[in-house]
Amino acid sequence: MKYLCLVYCDESLLHSLPESPADAECMAYAESIQGSGRMLAAEALKPVQTATTVRVRGGQMSLTDGPFAETKEQLAGFYLVDARDLNEALNIARGIPAARVGSVEVRPIRELQP
């Protein structure tokens, strides 16, 4: 089953805490998951001030600057993995270096019904 691990963190603290992971560590972890054959995709995101939110209402598109909602912790990156079950997905999630300073939400992927 596919799971999306959403990494949330207070962006202002993400890189400044003693526990904060360096890019090299994040890269190494992503490679280890890649090596295990469970990785589908993983990326880190630029800060939310670079975000643009799109909505379409009545055929009309509107754009707003910023994320869809102002929250205390922001989406900072994600892992899309293929795991046997929730336990395996949780084990991958607990190893994500940013979990030490933020939170990782693990969500199963819903297969669309054609």
Partner: peptide, 14 residues
Amino acid sequence: RDARIPYQVPSLAE
């Protein structure tokens, strides 16, 4: 069912 919590006894480590 939906998040597929496995039906198993955890490993000795867990």
